[in-house]
Simulated assay, not measured.
Amino acid sequence: MLVTGADGLIGRATTEHLVGRGWRVTALSRSWHAPLEAERVLTGDVTDQQAVAEAVADVDAVVHLAAIPHPDIDTPRTVFVNNTVGTFTVLSEAGAAGVGRVVTASSINAFGVPMNTHPVQPAYYPLDEESPVDHDDAYSLSKWVDEQTARMAHSRWGVDVLAVRFPLVRDAASLRRRSQQVVDDPDLGRLGREGWAYLDLRDAVVLIEAGLTRPLSGAHVVLATAADILPDRPTEELLDRFAPDVPRRRAFPGRSGLVCLDRVQELLGWQPRHSVHTPAPADDAMAVTA
């Protein structure tokens, strides 16, 4: 199987996890900052059709993680073109090569509200995959377009695609530091537009493997976050302060998460195991529920 963006945070963790689980992995990245154990390690850009065609040769699944991950990293045009062309190239070459399954990284920002430069709010809490879109930046729009490309790829080539709307994903130590910092962040209110969501890296890689192995047909979009919020504050206290007029479809006691996880649980049997607010379990082994 192929992992694109294999030199990134999630890419390295995914590659290491899958290799450790006995997968034969081809790792693709446009640059490398350290060695990586994989059956094949290729240097190339996902917007390069020839490089992608070589990478998908003789693989039966793809994890597509390569992207420019934030609108401020480059110009809006470069962000949009890189992300959408990269995803189209990976999905089209995978489809043409007869690859049966692709797990691709979308973003919690795909519905546009979190990074919108206007003072907009979500239509309701908890956020779900049907939250109305309101795009105002190239990155969020690119991720939404990638999800439409996944639907096209299934229709055109029959490849089954899972697009995961990831939030902030970090290792446990980084999340603990961020949790302590975020309560004083002047951007705390805007972060509420994405539900103050996060995901432990360990849960992310288990989710990706579930996306590769669980029975699945079609093109699906799922949100995947921790079960609670990142700030060490009561959820409803934050909502009262920053989003008092946004409808709440249920109560959010304690630090309850503001993202609905029903779809990912139904499709993959996955649920998050790690919280930034509790000590790491003695046994770090992770499992997907049956």
Rank of each mutant, 00 (worst) to 15 (best):
L191H: 15
D48W: 11
T87V: 15
V102P: 06
D262S: 15
A57V: 09
H64Y: 07
S131M: 14
D74G: 06
D128R: 01
R12S: 10
W196S: 00
A110L: 06
A67I: 04
V145L: 04
V103C: 02
S107L: 10
L212M: 02
F242E: 08
A51P: 13
M1D: 14
F166M: 03
V206W: 08
F111A: 09
G100V: 00
T104D: 07
A219Y: 07
R30M: 06
V79G: 01
V56G: 07
V161P: 12
D48S: 10
N83Y: 04
H135T: 06
R151T: 12
Q271L: 11
V59W: 01
D228M: 11
A94T: 10
G192L: 01
D146N: 15
A219S: 15
V85A: 13
H64N: 04
W23F: 14
D232W: 02
I108W: 07
L267C: 07
V145Y: 02
H118T: 14
R40K: 14
D228E: 12
R214E: 01
F242Q: 06
T89S: 01
P167T: 00
G218L: 03
A173T: 14
S92T: 13
R170L: 08
L162P: 13
R176I: 02
P234V: 03
I229L: 05
A150K: 08
S275I: 09
T75P: 11
T26N: 03
D232T: 04
A219T: 10
V113I: 15
E266D: 14
P35L: 03
F252N: 05
H277S: 02
H118I: 11
D48M: 06
A13W: 08
P279E: 01
V59G: 01
